[in-house]
Write a protein that binds this DNA or RNA. Sequence first.
DNA 1: GTCTATATAACGATAGAC
DNA 2: GTCTATCGTTATATAGAC
Lengths: 297, 297
Amino acid sequence: MNDKKKKIIQSALKLFGEKGYHSSSIQEISEASGLAKSSFYNYFQSKEELMITIIKYYYELLVDRVNSIEEIVDLPTREKFCQQLTIQIKEFIKHKDFIQMQLREQSIDENDEIHKLLFKLRAESIHWYSMQLKAIYGDKISDHLLDCTTMLNGIIKEYMFYIIVDKIDIDTNRLASFILDRMDGIISSITSIDKPLLDTDLMANFINYKLNTLENAKSLISTEIKEFKRIIDASNFSKLDHEKVMSSLEAIEDELANDNPKIVVIQGLFLYLKSFNKPIIDEMISRIDQIVKSRLT
Amino acid sequence: MNDKKKKIIQSALKLFGEKGYHSSSIQEISEASGLAKSSFYNYFQSKEELMITIIKYYYELLVDRVNSIEEIVDLPTREKFCQQLTIQIKEFIKHKDFIQMQLREQSIDENDEIHKLLFKLRAESIHWYSMQLKAIYGDKISDHLLDCTTMLNGIIKEYMFYIIVDKIDIDTNRLASFILDRMDGIISSITSIDKPLLDTDLMANFINYKLNTLENAKSLISTEIKEFKRIIDASNFSKLDHEKVMSSLEAIEDELANDNPKIVVIQGLFLYLKSFNKPIIDEMISRIDQIVKSRLT
DNA sequence: GTCTATATAACGATAGAC
DNA sequence: GTCTATCGTTATATAGAC
């Protein structure tokens, strides 16, 4: 991204965090970026497009950082989630303008695209937390997964509000493990309950959103990989290369068959396939990668 | 309050909840109230004054409803708090436009008076929840009172967001007891921890705010009551009446000496004192009542 | 790509007739 | 108290010179 575009994003974000979206004008944003008002429109078509860019940019930043230790660190699930939570909290604080903006104005609804984007991000966030809690506490809480995710989310938000908006100096190294210890208490108290408050019917919009994009992407990618295999079979690769490529493709298919496929595994395999330096492979990968990026991230 | 003024408040609140404070214009508010734009200014000096009126009006409504069963219902503390939570949740839903507005825009900061008001209400809310939790779980959690209040607040907010903003149909009869059962789990998990995340030093602004107004009010009222007693002594009441009035005043002093004086007890005693139908008593009461209203509600 | 100048609309708030 | 008319300001966004 252009340096000046980044400058505008940062200036705008700072203002949005401090004064809110509606109280920050293009005038102020441009001035804070060292530009005249009208020059803003060389970089963004409108204030709303700026907002959408900001949300996408920072959300991706946060997700990437958390995902980065999904595979690298080899730890018990609970410890790994605790580390991910700690990283998430520290990233929240690092990009506190973004979080403050989100905490202040939970929904900038008037624009439909922003509304849909925020809904998508919420659905993905709920899905991610649910998967992590399921991995830690196992099937015994699967009925109460949505309730547990909701409570965890509420607790994290409330502490983040104190830290970022009220500028209260909480020990961030302890926060994640403190909250997780409290989740232990919540979960041990929950097993005796018969019926959850939130079930998959009530939360269908959130659940199905993620499911649809996931299943959709899986099916699209699956089709592409079948085509990929056909092309490789028809090409004049050495027997060894042919075998390597095929087993890579099958590994991708295996990963996609999981409930919660790991994007980093797939992208690692893409890198491996790219190392063959064959244009025909690169072209197929870029087609699949586009689906992965648009539907699974 | 004037009927038309109420109409404006309700129309405005609906718009603020749906579109947000900044996206709702005086024009829209006036039209929704069946008035021309300029007629709005016959009822409110400005948009900000309208906002302040709305916040004070609805917050008082909610607090009064919850306080109404503080004394009337004779139940174990835990059951009473559970009932109060249930009432609070149902009141939240009844006045969902107000809550939606609060959830959407956590702070309308640019105006200093609104900022101070919202801070005061937050401090009072934190104080109330802390007192309730202390009453239920006793001294064993007194070190972790602020953490427990924070988590309880976060959980309630998150569920309210689902109910009011996402319109998810959660069983509100079960919600309060469900959350309280989870608080049991949180509290039983917390006893082993040595050091809380939030202590009274970090939260000094919130704690002291309530403390200052409370101590301040106590001292002011105490002075007034001493003067009151002096006047009664000098007046020509019958011996019986004199005794009754004096013991009422002493009961008020006793109540104020408590950590968390109950406003309803004091106001009950005011009503009793008014029943004497003496102008001199009524005048004193109205002076003290003004202090109570402005500092303790 | 940058700027000045401007178009156009909406905003909060006021004046003054009735 | 209600309205119409309008003020002064600010907002987003565009036109066009350099």
